[in-house]
């Protein structure tokens, strides 16, 4: 029986082809609907490029004399990031304990732990800042608390995972030599979780430096307030100075954070 020579080949069969085309179509419709929902005024779009060029022209060159003035707010930004991270770690320890499957006392505490982790993580730092400003007034204190609360979910989730992954054999060894529960913690557990703690702390601090640059928009301290003020007063060269400073601070902390994480093995 002769086999008919096969002269056509397609990557997908008919059904897959139609499904794929339908998928593309749906995606296109969603994109168009989304665009229409924005009610964009096209004159704005048309002028955007020119406006941006104008703006950059007014910004350039940056104002070096203003660079000296923004040192205090930059330092405050750093302070907010450091204290916020420190406070977050402090608050995260018990929550990590509750949110870790192997250490949590019971199902209810586990649920509470998970709720706190998810809840704090889902509320943006700027929203936390708005709440803390109502409570403590404007200033860096609200900023520190906002950064701290925003970080709790991230920090305690990773800390809990670090605790869950320890090798029970090392704990058993310390118990076997007759070590006290304290010895078990200091020799059996701490050396194992230390790298996780250090890397989580420095990593989150790195993120928090970025977060701390913006909470000033709503009055929670840091360099963001200077940016807001400079824009309000149309001091464009100052705006560029601030943007460059932000860039520098964030890149430097990213480098420091990467260096520290590389050091802990």
């Amino acid at each position: 029986m002769a086999v008919e020579p096969r002269t056509s080949w397609t990557k997908y069969d008919r059904k897959t082809k139609i499904l794929r085309m339908l998928g593309v179509l749906v995606a296109a419709v969603v994109a168009v609907l989304a665009w229409r929902a924005l009610h964009v005024r096209y004159t704005f779009v048309a002028n955007a490029a020119r406006n941006l060029r104008d703006l950059l022209g007014r910004m350039y060159p940056p104002n070096p004399s203003y660079a000296v003035e923004i040192v205090p707010p930059l330092v405050e930004t750093m302070n907010i990031a450091i204290l916020g991270t420190g406070l977050a770690i402090f608050l995260s320890l018990p929550i990590a304990y509750l949110g870790a499957e192997n250490t949590t006392p019971n199902a209810i505490t586990y649920a509470i732990g998970k709720f706190l982790i998810v809840g704090t993580r889902s509320v943006n730092v700027i929203i936390w800042a708005l709440f803390f400003i109502i409570i403590f007034g404007t200033g860096a204190l609200a900023g520190v608390l906002a950064v701290a609360f925003r970080s709790i979910g991230f920090v305690s989730k990773l800390l809990a995972e670090g605790i869950e992954e320890i090798d029970p054999g090392q704990v058993a060894a310390i118990r076997a030599v007759g070590g006290s529960p304290f010895d078990v913690v200091v020799y059996g557990i701490v050396p194992q979780v230390k790298p996780t703690f250090v890397s989580v702390a420095t990593y989150r601090w790195d993120i928090n430096v970025r977060e701390a640059t913006i909470i000033g928009f709503v009055g929670a301290g840091g360099i963001g307030a200077s940016l807001d003020a400079s824009i309000d007063f149309f001091q464009w060269s100052n705006v560029l100075t601030i943007l460059i400073a932000m860039l520098g601070v964030v890149l430097v902390s990213e480098g420091v954070s990467a260096y520290l994480r590389g050091k802990t093995r």
């Binding site: 058993a172 060894a173 310390i174 059996g188 050396p191 194992q192 790298p195």
Partner: peptide, 19 residues
């Protein structure tokens, strides 16, 4: 082995005296 992996050899040996 159940050694404390991230500590030095000396600390591991001396941990025998923790009790």
């Amino acid at each position: 082995f159940n050694l404390i992996e991230r500590l030095t050899v000396m600390e591991n040996v001396l941990s025998g005296r923790l009790g």
